[in-house]
């Protein structure tokens, strides 16, 4: 892998900052916890400060806050419709939290710094996806009762195919939290590993052959960084959109 003693996976290492234990369970405050708290505080301050003037004609700052609001509003309107209004705060929180967790992970830094990509941890993305999955399932049963189970019976399929189709439908339903979480996790890990490896090339090539050859991977890393910025936003969008689609399936049972 990379040169020297720095592994490109080192950036994913969680460190305990403040050791804590509740009832024998380790709940230590870690670098990941710190980033989560910092991002949550940042989002809250951003939202509060942006809306502090409550201007009828928004300035740039308030316009930015309203942009996120309108963007998630649009997502819900497109994918769910009026019935999705109730879930707006939920989808908004998921979207903006994942977006800023992804972006803060891209702040250029050394692996030993406090910059950390929380969304590159499968346990985090899986927990989020599981909450989305559970919420969608509960909403489905709340809206349709036991009838929600007919979601697994595709319409217009010949009866003799059902023994095959129903297990497929059930499987594709229960695989949702896994695909949802792995998509975000894998994208983040792949991007950050690539950045770390090519970043290592910049240093090792530059050190070995008098700087100039290092410029090639440097140019590549600039391009990849731009791509990673796109992916950071895109994956937050994809996660929020799929949340909307799962909620829409539960509310409208559209197939």
């Amino acid at each position: 892998m990379a040169e020297g003693h720095h592994s490109p996976l080192e950036q994913f290492q969680v460190h305990t900052l403040v050791p804590l234990k509740i009832g024998g369970v380790d709940v230590s405050f870690t670098n990941a916890s710190l980033v989560m708290v910092a991002v949550a505080v940042f989002i809250t301050v951003f939202m509060l400060a942006g809306m502090s003037k409550r201007a009828v004609v928004p300035g740039r700052f308030q316009g930015a806050v309203e942009f996120f609001h309108d963007y998630v509003h649009g997502l819900i309107n497109e994918n769910i419709g009026a019935a999705g209004r109730k879930y707006f705060p939920f989808v908004f929180t998921i979207f903006i939290f994942i977006l800023f967790l992804n972006l803060v992970g891209l702040v250029p830094s050394s692996p030993t710094s406090l910059v950390f990509t929380v969304t590159s941890h499968i346990i985090v993305t899986f927990a989020m996806a599981a909450v989305v999955f559970l919420l969608a399932t509960v909403v489905g049963f709340m809206h349709h009762g036991v009838h929600f189970l007919s979601f697994f019976v595709p319409k217009g399929v010949p009866a003799w195919l059902l023994p095959l189709m129903v297990p497929i439908e059930v499987m594709s339903y229960f695989i949702r939290p896994i695909t949802l979480s792995v998509r975000l996790f894998a994208n983040m890990v792949a991007g950050h590993v690539m950045l770390a490896v090519i970043g290592g090339f910049v240093f090792s090539l530059g050190a070995a052959f008098f700087i100039v050859p290092g410029l090639i991977p440097l140019a590549a890393i600039v391009a990849i960084f731009a791509l990673e910025l796109l992916i950071a936003c895109l994956q937050a969008y994809v996660f929020a959109t799929l949340t909307c689609i799962y909620l829409n399936d539960a509310i409208h049972m559209a197939h």
Binding site: V27, T30, A40, T93, V118
Partner: peptide, 29 residues
Amino acid sequence: TFWAPQLFWLVIVTTVLFLVMWKVTLPRV
């Protein structure tokens, strides 16, 4: 090793963030 602290802080932070967004900031917007 770190799954428990990750989950613990994730739940706390997202719950608080969700409540703040839901009850405080989004109604203002």
